Computed example of a mutant assay.
Amino acid sequence: MLMRAVVQSGPGGVGTLSISMVEKPVASAGQLLVRVMAAGLNRADIVQREGHYPAPEGASPILGLEIAGVVEAVGGPSRFKAGDAVFGLLQGGAYADYALLDEALAIPKPDSMSWAEAASLPEVWMTAWLNLVDVADLQAGERFLVHAGASGVGAAAIQLACLLGAEAVASASADEKLDFCRELGAVQAFNARREPVFSAQIKAKGGVDVILDPVGGSYFRENLACLKPDGRLVVIGIMGGRSAELNLGLLLVKRLRIMGSTLRSQPLAVRERLARALEQVVLPAIAAGKARVTLDSIYPLSAVADAHLYMEDNSNLGKVVLDLSQVMQM
């Protein structure tokens, strides 16, 4: 059987994207075939579209890493059944009417959440948990800085830091985004475009213990300068360049740790553990009003190019999601 999917003519801009009919996938053991109702957009989708972030071996070449939808079929014995509402993280294939979701990564969708809200959660909250809890070991009472704080990951990271009892600081590229970061719990926020030398004002407040950075090269020197002794820098992106000069003296004197991290390449067992953290810790926090869904905008599948351009322009406060719930005539 055929289904709609966003396909690509080759690496490049949004002009390479189009909607075509492709073969519908079939669930094998340990997988759920899900009728996709909403799919989240991520910066990784843009980088993959441009040809710089290929899908892992065996993953769908179709863009998209997170979905919410209805189970249509199960590949063998399962805790889920056809008709169940679920959401979860993929390694590819979300921009389509149907996608395969590893059962280990599937999370029951709360009735109180819309499809779009559920689809906005997996990638950003699992990324935040991986890097703040597992990689950086952020502790209660520590001070935490996240760059691009108004992005999907940034918004989740600010809230998770607060849930962990840490103090959150954020950078962003516009004053509106700084207000958004403060609303989420950041006690200090600064405009990184207006204040490219940010270490002085961070150090004036005592520095930070942990930094989560999707920017990379252009922020590297400032990041090291504002870290406290025994500070940890976790780099999760290179939007600001892949090269930087490392002051080894500073690294030694301050006993700093610099770590690189990606979610997509993690083993299934790690991703499963992160999915359980989302299910058992984050969802109850949202239900209790201690955290919130940060859904910026919803685009129909037919406007996937516009959605990509909107995210590339860094206009979003939180998550951008594609709506696939409406059947579109081809």
Rank of each mutant, 00 (worst) to 15 (best):
M3E: 08
V14Y: 05
I19F: 11
M21D: 15
M21L: 14
P25S: 09
S28A: 14
R35K: 13
V47W: 10
V47C: 10
P61K: 10
P61F: 08
A68F: 04
F80P: 07
K81G: 14
K81F: 03
L89I: 04
G92S: 04
Y95M: 07
L100Y: 04
L101T: 08
A104P: 01
K109H: 02
D111C: 02
M113H: 09
W115I: 04
A119M: 05
S120D: 07
M126V: 07
L138Q: 07
A140H: 05
R143G: 02
H147T: 03
G154A: 00
A156L: 09
A166K: 13
A170Y: 03
S171R: 00
K177P: 15
A186F: 05
A186S: 13
N191K: 03
A192I: 05
A192F: 01
R194L: 10
F198Q: 13
S199W: 11
A204K: 12
G216P: 06
Y219C: 09
Y219V: 00
L224Q: 13
K228Q: 13
D230W: 14
R232Y: 08
G240S: 09
G249R: 12
G249A: 08
K254A: 12
K254Q: 12
R255C: 09
R255F: 01
G260T: 09
G260C: 06
S261C: 10
S265D: 10
S265R: 11
V270E: 04
R271I: 11
R276V: 12
Q280V: 03
L283V: 11
A291K: 05
R292L: 03
L295V: 05
A303G: 00
A307N: 09
N316P: 00
L322C: 10
D323F: 04
Q326F: 00
M328V: 13
